[in-house]
């Protein structure tokens, strides 16, 4: 079995990269990582510890252009059985193209290793159900949902080969990149503190940020809160916003409407803080605090700080 993993390599490796390499290792057979970008070879060799046998990095494809990367991957993937991506913005742009180019079935958003019958579990209906998908082709393309399968260490640093191959003109020109300072990207966050209309106004978000900082968590919000401009749009989670699956999701002043739950019910542990014992969110929660956020959250911040100090 020959497995290929694609990794964007313009910025430092993230947990998502370790997840896909370790996933490919667990599929059985060899693992070759194809990387595109300028990240130093020394940094890339670390992928060996997660199961890569070798890394081939293309130093010419630094523009992160999905058409060029697809052409490069297609040349290398002719003999591969499985081609694995992370189901992030890169995977979503490149994997479908490669599926058409190779005419290989694409299982998008895998959340587990293959079952005994070869099918792979994916989320469907915005996380309200699971589907088991099969490919009818010998080559499979799989994109792995971040935070679904924990990365495992299984070897030593591996060799990195640098190549320079270019493919046609770049049709998409990048003018600029805007990055919010210092915050943890929501889809990658292991802990998320989220708040809704129950907080009454944007001026009350200080305690949500304090709690997030104390926990090393990212912040999120319900849709109405983003719509009325209390919080930036990129924090909106749910069916029509970002879908997340952190280890810990703390929901403060959110009622738990089905559309909100759709984006967060993949979280491993859910804590709900709400004075209304009838709020639907309690049905989806692991831990619940029936109380007023303005009293409970400051106490929780103190408790977390105490815990961290000891």
């Amino acid at each position: 079995m020959k497995n290929i993993v694609f990794i964007p390599a313009n910025s430092p490796l993230t947990k998502a990269s370790f997840e896909v390499v370790s996933y490919a290792r667990n599929l059985g057979g060899t693992v070759t990582v194809l990387a595109a970008g300028k990240l130093p070879s020394q940094d890339l060799s670390v992928l060996g510890t997660y199961g890569a046998d070798e890394v081939i990095v293309n130093r010419s494809l630094v523009a992160n252009d999905d058409q060029q990367i697809t052409m490069w991957l297609a040349n290398y993937c002719k003999e591969a059985n499985n081609i694995v991506f992370s189901h992030d913005f890169n995977g979503k742009a490149i994997a479908p193209r490669l599926s058409v180019k190779l005419k290989a079935g694409f299982i998008s958003g895998a959340i587990a290793l293959p079952e005994n019958d070869g099918s792979i579990k994916v989320n469907v209906y915005s996380g309200k159900a699971f589907g088991f998908m099969k490919c009818n082709t010998t080559q499979k393309i799989i994109s792995l949902l971040p935070n679904s399968v924990a990365p495992e260490m299984s070897g030593n640093a591996c060799g990195v080969t640098e190549v320079e191959e270019t493919f046609g003109e770049i049709k998409v020109k990048v003018l600029s990149v805007k990055k919010p300072e210092g915050s943890i990207p929501l889809p990658e966050a292991e802990r998320v503190v989220s708040a809704g209309r129950g907080l009454k106004g944007p001026e009350n978000w200080g305690m949500i940020e304090d709690l997030a900082n104390a926990l090393g968590a990212a912040t999120a919000c319900s849709r109405p809160v983003a719509d009325i401009g209390w919080r930036p749009h990129h924090e909106h989670v749910g069916q029509t916003g970002v879908a997340i699956r952190p280890n810990l999701y703390i929901a403060v002043g959110i009622s738990g409407a089905i559309q909100h739950l759709a984006g967060v019910n993949g979280s491993k542990v859910i804590v709900v803080i709400n004075p209304d014992a009838e709020a639907p969110f309690f049905k989806a929660a692991d831990y619940g605090v029936i109380g007023d956020a303005f009293e409970v959250v400051p106490k929780l911040i103190d408790a977390v700080k105490n815990f961290r100090a000891n």
């Binding site: 993230t14 992030d88 020109k173 990048v174 003018l175 600029s176 805007k178 990055k179 919010p180």
Partner: peptide, 8 residues
């Protein structure tokens, strides 16, 4: 990842 790209 964690930002917004402006493209033409």
């Amino acid at each position: 990842a964690g930002g917004v790209e402006v493209v033409q």
